[in-house]
Design a protein around this nucleic acid. Structure first.
Lengths: 373, 373
DNA sequence: CTTTCCCATTGAATCGTTTGAAAGATGATG
DNA sequence: CATCATCTTTCAAACGATTCAATGGGAAAG
């Protein structure tokens, strides 16, 4: 422990007592002035000024631990994410950060890396830090229901973003997946496509099923035939780029089996990227030979080549709505409010870019092939 | 404030005193047992067992504020990033998280959104939270030197990742940009390219100049001519996708002026994505008509269409090295250690994918055009 | 002259934990 | 019996801030 010239150890920082000593007033007064507490109304203007000057000169910063201990408030909101490298998370996080910015709260972000053990460790730490609220960004989530249900035991207002629990008291904010699936198929169908391949999400994922429900609903409405050979399913490993790889290999397999589809609906954007790769490797170009539609609208969808048509989830908004609900619950003082287990379903939005187009009126596929020979 | 059946307010949680009362031992003993302090050697085995049982039953979690206040340690490392949506950050963050995982430290991540005001606000908060170390992920950084120099005033061990200060005492961990630039040009040159267009980084960015130095060094070595019309520069706004947009428009301009180049070296991957888009819109395909080389190897480079050849920065390793250095400095007890201002330069690595190829031996450009008519 | 009110500041308790010193036991040794 | 060592547990003082109640002065009101 190094000793500075002023005799203090290098670890200790300027404290309230230091400012008190230096300014000649008591710690109470310092605290009152610096926090602009109501009674500071009675403190002489000259005193205030003097105290502020000294505090600044000594570079005084109140210790968050001392303060939080006494006030019994941490002024933090825990944010648990499951994979920071998932671009889906990123925008939600931004929404959360931006909304929190205007408040007195600081986000405390932890990344569970899709591992249950980590999830529990970090959860425990967040609770030790007495977070006043908890936002769980549950994008691609195989943590079992019980683990999440545990959350409410902790008497910390909690909101789930991007996912929904089939039951249980936790509130959630997510896109209307059913409607999204519906919109997606509607888009392809109205472009004239009738031979459509599908890569649906993993069956274990509840949200994935909802999305598929929407697809089925539209298909039923217009009487679209969906042959089994063109409907495949992601297994959903938790690896980072797994949906790209799976999208690619599933598409390859379908192409080898029967390449007759003119459009492909992917579970999400990453899967769509993989599909585009597979199509290209097979000699098909997008969208001329086959349209590809994604889901999510991750930031890279617009940069991709060709830029990807997709169903957008309002991710930033989801983040800020989650924050709004948490702040609300905090203000309610932890009371079990009526709308607590509420589910906010936000409308998805279809974004048409380059990867989808009306079905080729001329025999474009043939022409292209000749051109290549 | 809701009152529970046991008479405690709903805000207060089980505390050490609760466990003490319930178990019949004193708070001291509880603390000693639960922390497995050295003297716990003397505590009767039966007592230990009993205390642990009670603690578990009451779901006791030590309050981080009380503990940190007393122990004068926060067990947190602040991580300041400048734009979480930048995929460059993401991998570094993962490296940091993974390395921290095996330690007693918790990362405290904040995102300054490229704004100075935010940077300072968050920095103040991190200091109030008494972070024991600080990692600044300074990817795309226009915060002025003074602001960063301030950091060392705070007597908190600090390491910069991904950027370097021309002077000053802060240590940094980053890729060898000069070598990266050298490798990049070498790659294109050895593929046979002689007419190469360059999009260099913003001049204000120190690291960008280093990279450019490497390019120039190789060019000088082999005597490559670099006509001014094919050398452009990013302005470097802090917007999220600005390098894509700029890469695209700069490439467009060059193409309109003189499309004779057969390869393009971009400042980073995002710029490269923009360049590919511009080339395609101009009717050039990559790599058949023009090779494109990026820098960074963001996760999407491999998924892009065509997959992007690039110079990889070992981002995850940069993160873990930064953690290692911070932990080291913390162990040194904040002493000014000899290697404190040290700069770790990691070697870049060329990753060849689809976007670069040997120069076209046949007159492919012409053939393609005819094919399209 | 006492009471009341306002002004300006402070004393002292408190938040939940850790920890060095001390205090009770018990048994062994001189 | 005093002394000492060993074991087991507790006391009480921090850590740094906030806040309620209290202080003492001065002026105005009764």
């Amino acid at each position: 422990m190094a000793i500075r010239k002023d005799g203090k150890t290098s670890f200790s920082r300027t404290t309230l007592a230091d400012v008190a000593r230096e300014s000649g007033f008591s710690p109470s007064t310092i605290s009152i002035v610096l926090n602009e507490a109501p009674i500071s109304r009675y403190v002489a203007a000259k005193t205030k000024e003097h105290i502020r000057e000294v505090a600044k000169r000594l570079d005084y910063r109140p210790d968050a631990f001392g303060r939080s201990l006494r006030k019994r408030r941490s002024h933090t909101i825990g944010v648990m994410i499951f994979d920071i490298s998932d671009p889906f998370c990123t925008l939600i996080l931004q929404g959360i950060e931006k909304s929190l910015h205007s408040t007195e709260f600081l986000p405390f972000i932890v990344d569970a890396h899709n591992q249950r053990e980590q999830f529990e460790r970090y959860l425990a730490m967040l609770l030790e830090y007495r977070v006043e609220g908890l936002i769980v960004v549950a994008n691609w989530l195989f943590i079992d229901i019980e683990t999440l249900s545990e959350l409410e035991r902790h008497r910390v207002p909690t909101v789930l973003v991007g996912s929904e629990m089939r039951s249980g008291p936790l509130g959630s904010v997510l896109v209307n997946n059913e409607q999204g699936g519906y919109l997606a198929l509607q888009h392809l169908y109205s472009l004239g496509h009738r031979k459509i391949a599908f890569i649906r999400g993993p069956r274990q994922l509840w949200d994935s099923s909802r999305r598929w429900d929407g697809v089925l609903r539209y298909a039923a409405e217009v009487g679209l035939r969906m042959p089994k050979k063109w409907v495949v399913e992601l297994t959903g490993s938790s690896e980072s780029n797994s949906s790209f790889d799976e999208g690619r290999s599933l598409t390859s397999t379908m192409l080898q089996h029967d390449p007759g589809f003119t459009a492909l609906l992917a579970f999400d954007d990453l899967t769509a990227f993989g599909a585009v790769r597979a199509l290209r490797d097979f000699g098909r170009s997008v969208p001329e030979d086959c349209s590809v539609l994604g889901f999510d609208d991750v930031p890279y969808a617009a940069l991709f080549n060709p830029s990807l048509s997709t169903v957008r989830q309002p991710m930033e908004r989801m983040g800020s709505i989650a924050v709004g609900r948490i702040l609300n619950e905090i203000q309610q003082g932890g009371e079990v409010t009526p709308g607590k287990g509420r589910v906010d379903l936000l409308p998805p939005e279809l974004v048409q870019r380059e990867s989808t187009a009306a079905i080729h009126p001329t025999g474009r596929i043939l022409a292209r092939k000749i051109g290549k020979i």
